[in-house]
């Protein structure tokens, strides 16, 4: 899932203050799971902005709403009137959702309320860990199911480096060395011989280096 974090309230306020009709708009998929960008968070943020507006004696009508996903056309119909009503939309979806909102509503001012952070998993309630870089060419089969693109600070295809100490990374003693995890897992699987196999050079053209990417299923076009 995509993990995001709400921008500081001061930054958000500086973006949106003064708009007569402001809609705080949530997305109820990834960023709702991380308790930052769902409809519930939109309601809370709208309340905070109303309080700020009151304190600064700025007259604003601030409302909130949300849809299941801000990155798909089909969910927007239900919110068309709400969006049409607004002078500006504060989207607390990820960067994808914000841009999709812009694409669908070119005449409405759209501001991001979230900093999109990473793709990750829910390790435990409240803790989200980065685990994929969307490099476009998965090599988890070569690295014992542990992504060195996202979990090794140096993205080493053949590690570990000299900075690995007692299973931890040199950039932070709280971060596991991805290559130590790989060795441990290979050992547990009885496949430690695979550790000495050289992982070939990576073709980065499938990552962002090749420009914006797209996936198209012609058979799904209606």
């Amino acid at each position: 899932m995509i993990v995001g974090k709400q921008k500081p309230l001061d930054d958000i306020w500086n973006s949106v203050k003064g708009f007569g009709k402001l809609l705080v708009f949530g997305c109820n998929t990834c960023v709702a799971i991380c308790h930052e960008g769902g409809t519930k968070e939109a309601e809370i943020l709208a309340s905070l902005l109303r309080m700020r507006a009151t304190q600064e004696n700025i007259s604003m009508d601030i409302r909130s709403s949300g849809i299941e996903r801000q990155c798909e056309h089909e969910f927007f119909d239900a919110a068309a009137k709400e969006i049409e009503w607004a002078d500006a939309v504060l989207s607390i979806a990820c960067g994808v959702g914000v841009q999709f909102m812009v694409k669908r509503n070119p005449s409405i001012q759209v501001y991001p309320g979230l900093d999109t952070c990473f793709m990750g998993d829910v390790e435990k309630p409240g803790l989200f860990m980065e685990s994929c870089q969307a490099c476009g060419k998965c090599i988890l089969d070569l690295t014992a199911g542990i992504c060195v693109m996202s979990r090794c600070a140096k993205r080493l295809l053949n590690g570990p480096c000299g900075g690995s100490t007692k299973g931890k990374c040199e950039i932070n003693k709280e971060i596991d060395c991805a290559w130590q995890l790989i060795v441990d897992r290979l050992e547990a699987l009885g496949k430690l011989d695979d550790f000495v196999k050289i992982v070939p050079l990576k073709d980065w053209s499938t990552s962002r280096d090749g420009g914006p990417r797209k996936l198209y299923h012609e058979d799904l076009e209606t």
Binding site: L23, A53, N57, D61, R63, K81, W85
Partner: peptide, 14 residues
């Protein structure tokens, strides 16, 4: 001052 800024409380979208 005769204003009424944002004292309408929670409002619902249309």
């Amino acid at each position: 001052k005769g204003g009424g800024a944002n004292d309408r409380g929670q409002t619902k979208t249309p």
